[in-house]
Amino acid sequence: MKSVRRTWLALVVGAAVTACSTVPAKLPAAADQPWGTLATASADPGASSIASGEDMPTVPRNLVPPMDPLPGPGSFPPGGSLQDIVDRGYLRVGVSRDTQLRGAWNPVAHQYEGFDVDIARRIADALFGPNNTGEADTIRYVPVSYSERLPAIENRRVDIVISTLTYTEARARRVGLSQAYFTAHPRLLTRRDPTRASTAPQTSPVAAAFADLAGKRVCAPRATTSLANLQQKLVQFGGFEIEGSLNELSDCLVAFQQGTVDAVAANDASLVGMLEQDATTELGDAEIGEREYYSVGFTRGDTELAGFVNGVLEGIRRDEAVWVGLCEAWAVAEMPCEGSRPPEPQWSR
């Protein structure tokens, strides 16, 4: 009798508990995670620590003397960096992915192309020989943004970087830099406006250029000498705002086309590529800073690779026909090759 009562009691209590409990319907933790942002590569730790004054362009100096004559394929010293690259079978080159006419991915031709890419090809040809099995096997391009260029070398993701890398003292302390292979001029890209005229007389073309930018926003990619130059000009002339958070020059062009910035500050070598892509833009006449000299970047202290790269570049510089041929392939009217020849190198003793 007792057991029957207990059974009934258990049934009643069980039913009551079952019926009484609230049904939890919150999603399980595995299904209710916040939507994370995309993983971003770590910022260039050296970029922020460099004072803008130290990151200003200068003529390359104290350069590792070039190999002369250049050793041919198969004659590199064993155990050296050149032999290692040859043993690997390909050269890892850091290039810009969207600086048109310098280094950019052509979505139609499905290949990287531009002046910098041609220089890289020359170096690869010198390493592997002109009759190598094909570019695809001797060069592997690693697209890098401006802020990734030095870390890519430091982290040994690439052997060399050829990506409109301006020579500065601060950069030369972080990575090895070659002699200059191109001279560029800082200028402004603005919207084409035939009716525009400077409202007030200015003491210089640069002052006039920045007077026109009063109250406007100017874009320069982060971790570039153009941004450092622009910051100096802001102190000097004032009156405009800087958008310096974008990673690539093409991001500046997007911002320009979207109307969030009014001008883009960079070297003419890079801006002409934007000029090619947007017929509503024009290149300012005034040079807004010191001339900049593009170098090839590589691991600091690797004198073997430095000497080899300088040997290749010096060969191109000395052979005017070769240099002009390379330059003319990517030249536009707004940036004639005459003003882009590299300066006389200053070798270390």
Binding site: R97, D98, T99, Q100, A104, W105, N106, P107, V108, A109, E248, S250, D251, L253, V254, Q257, G273, M274, E276, Q277, D278
Partner: peptide, 16 residues
């Protein structure tokens, strides 16, 4: 549009 025209800024638009 930029990609079809072979303009490298197309990738920047895609990134944006």
């Amino acid at each position: 549009a930029n990609n079809r025209a072979g303009n490298s800024v197309g990738q920047a638009y895609l990134r944006s």
